[in-house]
């Protein structure tokens, strides 16, 4: 039995968790989210390099919430998103136990301080292909970048897999689904697609933890996570605020300091 299975079994047996949200074997050699409720089923749990989807996204689902207190198998990216969810008052730290997994080590994290220490020690790894695209985008002129995104986004049919896979897209009614008034073009034409993705990037600015789930989820293969990632990098550069590191951090773009160096604040 793996260390993860042992720890998950103990959490379920002791009642510290009623469900363990983790990864299990799926079809086609892929892994998939599994919801383990009994000690007998912990053998379903696996953790290896294929486990990249951010499982904290399931915490917002009502049917998962009704299963009771959750323990969640978390990658470094998922740990950060959980911290961000706590900072945004979406998750009560007392309601969730974390089994932080990284390569072979499994660490049980039960309080905000432990989550923060873990996040500080475990940077999120950006996949090499994402890095390569980011670097090539940085070398492009604004016009070339626009052409790049126009071509990529022409594949978007607005299935919203990016939104559904994102732990921090937790709005029960997304701005793009508002119709009275309609803020964003709902139609999946070029303008509607661009409006949606720019809106999401702006909404994620300073909040995206760069877990990569949105990019992996996209059925059309669009490297869509780069937009939110870049927006978050700008916030980090301008305000020194990095998402997913502190459970009590005020949101970078919806708070202000009276002594801000910018004169327009007050």
């Amino acid at each position: 039995m793996s260390a993860l299975q042992v720890q998950a079994g103990e959490l379920l047996a002791s009642g510290k968790a009623e469900v363990v949200i983790g990864y299990g074997e799926g079809t086609r050699g892929r892994v998939r989210p599994v919801f383990v409720r009994t000690r007998a089923d912990v053998s379903l749990l696996v953790f290896d390099g294929r486990c990249t989807a951010n499982l904290t996204v399931y915490l917002a689902k009502p049917e998962v919430g009704r299963m009771g207190k959750a323990a969640i198998v978390a990658t470094p990216g998922a740990v950060r998103s959980l911290i961000q969810l706590i900072a945004e008052h979406q998750v009560d730290p007392g309601e969730v136990v974390v089994l932080a997994a990284d390569d072979d080590a499994v660490t049980l994290l039960t309080d905000p301080a432990a989550l923060e220490a873990y996040a500080a020690a475990h940077p999120v790894t950006i996949p090499p292909e994402a890095k390569a695209v980011t670097e090539s985008l940085a070398r492009m002129s604004a016009q070339e970048r626009r052409a790049f995104w126009d071509a990529e986004l022409s594949r978007c049919f607005k299935c919203y897999a990016c939104r559904s896979a994102c732990a921090l897209c937790y709005c029960t009614r997304c701005i793009t689904d508002m119709n009275q008034p309609q803020w964003v073009c709902v139609a999946p034409h070029a303008l509607g697609v661009m409006e949606w993705h720019l809106n999401r990037a702006m909404h994620m600015a300073g909040r995206c933890v760069q877990c990569g789930s949105c990019t992996s989820a996209c059925p059309a293969g669009i490297p869509i996570g780069l937009l939110a990632m870049e927006a978050s990098r700008s916030v980090e550069k301008e305000f020194g605020a990095q998402a997913g590191l502190r459970c009590d951090a005020p949101p970078a773009l919806s708070s202000f300091a009276a002594d801000d160096r910018e004169s327009f604040i007050l």
């Binding site: 989210p33 599994v34 996204v57 299935c159 919203y160 897999a161 989820a217 059925p219």
Partner: peptide, 10 residues
């Protein structure tokens, strides 16, 4: 339970 509620399949 694990369905994310996107429209990729459709």
């Amino acid at each position: 339970l694990r369905c994310l509620g996107c429209g990729a399949c459709a």
